[in-house]
Each structure stands twice: as structure tokens, then as C-alpha cells.
Amino acid sequence: MKSLLKILRDFPAYLWSGWGALASIFLFIAAWEIGNQVYGDLILPSPLETFQTLGALFGDSEFIENLMITLKRAMVGFGVSLVLGTALGLLAGFFVTASIVSRPIVTILMGMPPIAWIVLAMIWFGMGDATVEFTVIVASLPIVFVGALQGTRTLEDKFEEMADIFKVPKMMKFFDIYLPHIFSYVFPAWVAALGMAWKIVVMAELLATSDGLGAALAMARSQLDTATALAIVVAMVGLLMVAEYIFLEPIKREVEKWRD
């Protein structure tokens, strides 16, 4: 609770610290504008046109519907990865044998390109939600798993010893010693997994479904509607940035501060 209040108190200052980042984003947009002037509207629509198209898209019910479908798929996939990955990671972390056994498997899972998973999923599950959600899960679960595993593996014995000497109650030991440490590893892993889930969902949709943002992107490509395609890309990047930098990053900073 105290941490939450602190995050809220620091939030305006944190938000203000974004001006520098915004300046470099504007610089990037300026480069994009030059690209538009050099290559023309068909290849690279101007930022202004793209933002206008984006504004129009948000007033279009079909786009909102697609957005919601994508969000649902991403959230289902991410949710399963989060719960399963954290639970398995913690288990593997607490038992060295499980850790030794699971590590190579995770390495294989992480080494497998998501595009290969999509192909397999399309064969297994056909065209639809399951293919997309499955791909999201296999791509982001290992990230959460490794975070949770590292969080538990790096718990320092001396703190536990000290807690035992002072006869710290079990609940207190869990909430004040284990949890902050593990959370400081798990939370950043969740953030990374969310980013991964968001990218994978669109890619999977583009190849395996007829609805969602990915499918809309495929449609824009087939119609050579570069402005819409870019607007969808901006929407995707924008949503991820808002989720990551407005909601998650302040919490991440707070939980990671503990480690210093």
C-alpha cells in the first residue's frame, strides 16, 4: 500500500521526465517527414496524414472491434503465460532439480522462432483464436518463467538465516523478505512478456486469422493503403508505449529500487 502511494506521489514527476523522450520522438517523426518528402505518399505517408488516418480509424466501429479482438487474444495469451510461467518458474526456483531439468526445455522454447510456432499452430488448431493465443503463450511464457526462476534462485540465504535468528513469523518472512525480492525479478519479466505478447499477437493474426489488428494490417497491405497500414502500426506502438510507460514503468522502477 505504501509503495502504491509512493508510486502515485512520484507519478507527476515521472510523467514530466518524459519530455526528453518526447523530444527524441519528435526528432524521429521529423526524420519520417523527410522520408515522406523524399519517397512520396505511396511509399511513406507523412506523419500528419498518418495521424489523421489514425484519428479517423478510432471513429470507425470496425477498427474498434478489431482492436478489441486483438486485445482479448493478447490478454488471454499473456494472462495464461503470466500465471503458468510465474507458478512454474517459482516451483523450478525452489527445487534445484526442477531447475536443472526445466532450463534446457526453456532454452529450446525460447530458441524456437515464433513464426515456426505459428505454422505448427495453424496445422494443429486451424485458423482462429486458438492459434493466435497458443503462439502468444509459447512465445511469452518462457520469459516469465525465467524471470520467476531467477527471482527465486537469487534469494539470499543470509536473510533467511537472519529472519530465523530473530524468529520472524512465516507470513512476515514471506511478505517482507521473499516477495519484494522475487517481485523485483518477476515484474520486469511480466513487462517484457507483455511487449512480446503484443508483437506476436499481431503477427499471428496477420497470418492465421481474418479479424483483429493483424488481419486489418494484411487488408491494408493488399489494398496498398499505406496510410492505414502505418496508422495501425502507430496505434499498436502507441498502445504498447502507453501501457508500458504510463502504467508499468513507474511500478517497475519502484520494485527495482528495492534491489539497490
Partner: peptide, 20 residues
């Protein structure tokens, strides 16, 4: 050139970062 508009907005943002 319209690119100046974006650079100007970037300058405006950078200047506010001074307040950090």
C-alpha cells in the same frame, strides 16, 4: 518545410525537460 513543425515541437518538449 513542414519538417520544421516537428523539430519545433521537439524543441518545445526538450525545453520542458529542463524543469526535471
Amino acid at each position: 518545410n513542414r519538417v520544421l513543425g516537428w523539430i519545433a515541437l521537439g524543441t518545445a518538449s526538450a525545453s520542458l525537460a529542463i524543469l526535471n
